[in-house]
Nucleic acid binder design. Sequence first.
RNA 1: CGAGGCGUAGCGCAGCCCGGUUAGCGCACUUGACUGGGGGUCAAGGGGUCGGGAGUUCAAAUCUCCCCGCCUCGACCA
Length: 476
Amino acid sequence: MAQGITKRSEDYSRWYLDVIAQADLAEHSSVKGCMVIKPNGYAIWEKIQAQLDKMFKETGHVNAYFPLFIPESYLRKEAEHVEGFAPETAVVTHGGGKKLEEPLVVRPTSETIIWSTYKKWIQSYRDLPILINQWANVVRWELRTRLFLRTTEFLWQEGHTAHATADEAETETRRMLEVYRRFAEEYLAMPVYTGVKTEAEKFAGAVRTYCIEAMMQDRRALQAGTSHNLGQNFARAFDVTFQNEVGEVDYVWATSWGVSTRLVGALIMSHSDDNGLIIPPRLAPLQAVVVPIWKSDEQMAKVVAHVSELTSTWKGLLDFKVDDRDQYRPGYKFNEWEKRGVPIRIEIGPKDIENNEAVLVRRDSGEKISVPQERLLDTIFSQLDAMQSALFERALALRQTHTFEQDDFSEFRKQIEEPGGFFWVHWCGSEKCEAAFQETSKATIRLIPFDERREDGRCIVCGAASSQRVLVAKSY
RNA sequence: CGAGGCGUAGCGCAGCCCGGUUAGCGCACUUGACUGGGGGUCAAGGGGUCGGGAGUUCAAAUCUCCCCGCCUCGACCA
């Protein structure tokens, strides 16, 4: 069936790379660790961007742009932040043929340049809140890279907000986490768990990091988005103060939150199958493709004319394409659009025209149905909706059947290898026991849930008292 | 950086051990014909610094040395 795509069961990571190659999403560039995002891949990112941008605007945010280059000294101002990012920065030492007085760091994230700017913008509580987002590229000098999931340069959005109170900042942090959760579930059709990162896993410079975590088809966890409550850490580092309503001077409260082109990787690994990419309809750059079928030249003219007549009213209502290329046969086209993940394929040939019908094929199930032509557009819409939910349900079912509660450490260590999955385990909260997970099983604590999973138990590592289970899994 | 593997046409590879015609195969590409409801067939074509450099030799893709790059696996991370 699918040539050029390794089966998931054979080699999951090769399957992932094959799907990307066959769908023509991206390729490695001549620069190590960097990728070229090709039109098909970039179109998906544009759909992600468009929807998220809308959601950010709906929550009161505006877009701005801050520079790519950050004076090295800025990065050093927040102790934890520099410790976290210094090892993975690219540094520019020369410009215009001369050595720079101060090296410039290529941003790994923009907190420092933004807070050095916010300092100038904020005097009074009346200047707050500042709710800014930026779409940008960032660079992190990663040792091991994988297309979309981890590349040296990647595209993302980073929200950076400034608030008058701790409560307000916390509310903002949680609100944006909720935006990410909704986007993941309603658009990516990818169920996620939400929660708090442990101290070890949190963002360098944050007070608290919240995250969404999704299960990929190989049962590993993928962190798909993070939202940080930065407290007053950056305000202190950059001396950003304001006068509140009662005239007192205080440091400003901050948040930051981001998702990246990694989401494209998440989309691929959540839904695609051994025949190639599957894109959830709501994020599909092309929702439907129409393949006219003919034998003779006269038939071709007739069928193509009929199809163009039929689809003339679709424009603006549906993202579709009529594939009337004469140099490829229908079977070839079916396969090609399948590999590219187009949700719905419509076949219209002489027989269909005679019967006033069309054949509709869904990418996720392969199901073929005959539809009267006058109901075709409505059926496409209803099938797109059905497919969107079906993808979510399928992903949810996978997660449900591979999420376990486990109280025995040696049993856990066995199960994390086979069958693998997510494990809710009791943890005492110590770094030592957290490290034990990693060393013995290569799994990490993905998150501490909010109010769920509260119950008395004993730490799976050391046996000390625990009041809540945490989510542990192998991750990307 | 530690371990393993690989660089030969756009892609995937064979040839290398044991040096010797014009470097070959599959896919892709071009032209034409027949075809056309699940990756068509036939015919004719185009395309190569054999990763780079040096050496050995009458002769190097093949042997030797140096260099470069990439991939997979381990130590860092959205």
